[in-house]
C-alpha cells in the first residue's frame, strides 16, 4: 500500500463507521425503552468499535459526527447538549478502561454506558436545579449496565470481523 493510500483508507473507514453510528442512533429511537431517556446504545457500540479498531482519535471523530449529525437530523439544541455531554464522558470512560489489560470491550462498554447516564442525569440536575433527579440515576444506571453490556458484546463481535480492514 502506498503511504498516501493508508490515510485515505482510514478516512473512508472513519466515514463508514460514522454513517453506521448515525443510522443506528436513528434505528434505536424506534425501540423505546421503559425509562425516558434510556437508549439501547447501538450508536455508542459503533464509537466503541472505532475505539477498538482505530484508536481514540478516530473514535472522538466518529462520536463528534454522530452527535452533530443526529442533532441536526432528528434532534433539538437540548438533545444535542445531552448527547454531547453523555458521549464525551462515555468515550473518556471507555478510553481509560480500554488501557487496562484485564478489561474486555464488554466492561469498557458498561463503564461508558454508566458514565453516559451519569452525565445526562447530572446535566438534567444542573438545568432544572432539582438535586432529587439523582434518584432517577438508579433505574437508569441498572438498565444501562444491561444495554451497555449487550452493545459491548456486539462491538467485540464486529471488531473481530473487521479489524483486518481498519488499516491501523
Amino acid at each position: 500500500m502506498r503511504p498516501g493510500m493508508k490515510k485515505t483508507h482510514r478516512l473512508v473507514f472513519c466515514a463508514l463507521l460514522s454513517t453506521f453510528a448515525v443510522a443506528l442512533s436513528y434505528v434505536e429511537s424506534l425501540f423505546p425503552l421503559p425509562l425516558p431517556g434510556a437508549r439501547l446504545g447501538l450508536g455508542n457500540a459503533m464509537v466503541l468499535l472505532t475505539l477498538i479498531t482505530m484508536g481514540g482519535g478516530a473514535a472522538a471523530l466518529v462520536l463528534a459526527s454522530k452527535v452533530a449529525l443526529s442533532a441536526l437530523l432528528f434532534g433539538t439544541p437540548l438533545s444535542f447538549l445531552y448527547s454531547a455531554v453523555g458521549g464525551a464522558l462515555s468515550l473518556a470512560a471507555m478510553t481509560l478502561t480500554g488501557r487496562l489489560r484485564c478489561v474486555t470491550p464488554v466492561g469498557q462498554s458498561i463503564a461508558g454506558a454508566v458514565l453516559h447516564s451519569l452525565g445526562q442525569v447530572l446535566l438534567a440536575m444542573l438545568l432544572t436545579a432539582t438535586p432529587q433527579l439523582l434518584l432517577y440515576f438508579t433505574p437508569l444506571c441498572l438498565l444501562s449496565i444491561l444495554t451497555g453490556g449487550l452493545s459491548g458484546l456486539a462491538a467485540r463481535l464486529c471488531a473481530a470481523k473487521i479489524e483486518r480492514f481498519a488499516g491501523r
Binding site: C102, V103, G107, T138
Partner: peptide, 22 residues
C-alpha cells in the same frame, strides 16, 4: 474477565448510591 466484573461491581454500587442520599 476480572476487570469487567470489577467494573460491573462499581457500576452497581454507583447505582445504589443516590438511594442513601435522598
Amino acid at each position: 474477565k476480572k476487570g469487567d466484573l470489577i467494573i460491573l461491581g462499581l457500576a452497581l454500587v454507583l447505582a445504589a448510591a443516590p438511594l442513601t442520599l435522598f
